[in-house]
């Protein structure tokens, strides 16, 4: 039995760099697998609602009739289940954490219409909506395109 067992380690630590990083002067470190936020490539999405059914936090709402996919990023717990179950692999987990926001908002993506040409009704996944003119019933084609602080948009 004796005292000062830790002295050697303590003295060694005096000459070392700090074990923690000085955030925010030094940016946060991400790994490729870090669960930051969910993004959806809406072009690939077929609005099948599987992600909505499997989301444990009920953060997702898919409305096939209106062609929208909505995420509430403040409910999402980054579990990655939706990414795993998506049959079209349109969802991805991005490593960056998102900034805090003063207002809790949903984030809605609208599926673009298929091209309005003669072949549309043959290849269209939603022929019942073939009469709709682009943009006539929908608020926006691509809402808020490049806003890094918004999640999934």
């Amino acid at each position: 039995m004796g005292s000062f067992r830790l002295t050697k380690m303590s003295l060694r630590n005096l000459g070392r760099k700090p074990a923690t990083r000085p955030y925010p002067q030094q940016p946060a470190r991400y790994t490729p697998r870090t669960k930051g936020h969910i993004v959806n490539n809406i072009e690939l999405c077929i609005l099948c609602s599987i992600c909505q059914k499997r989301c444990p936090a009920t953060a997702l709402t898919v409305n096939k009739a209106q062609g929208t996919w909505t995420i509430n990023p403040f409910s999402c717990v980054q579990c990655g289940t939706c990414v795993r179950v998506c049959p079209k692999k349109s969802l991805r987990m991005q490593p960056e954490y998102t900034a805090a926001a003063a207002q809790m908002h949903d984030c809605t993506l609208v599926k673009p219409e298929p091209a309005l040409d003669g072949e549309r009704s043959l290849g269209s996944e939603r022929p019942q909506r073939s009469e709709r003119l682009p943009g006539s019933e929908r608020p926006q084609r691509k809402p808020r395109p490049e806003r890094p602080s918004r999640i999934g948009c």
Partner: peptide, 15 residues
Amino acid sequence: DEYNELVNTFLTDSS
């Protein structure tokens, strides 16, 4: 390696 030093402290330090 480092943990062994801590174990040494926990198990042999009189304090």
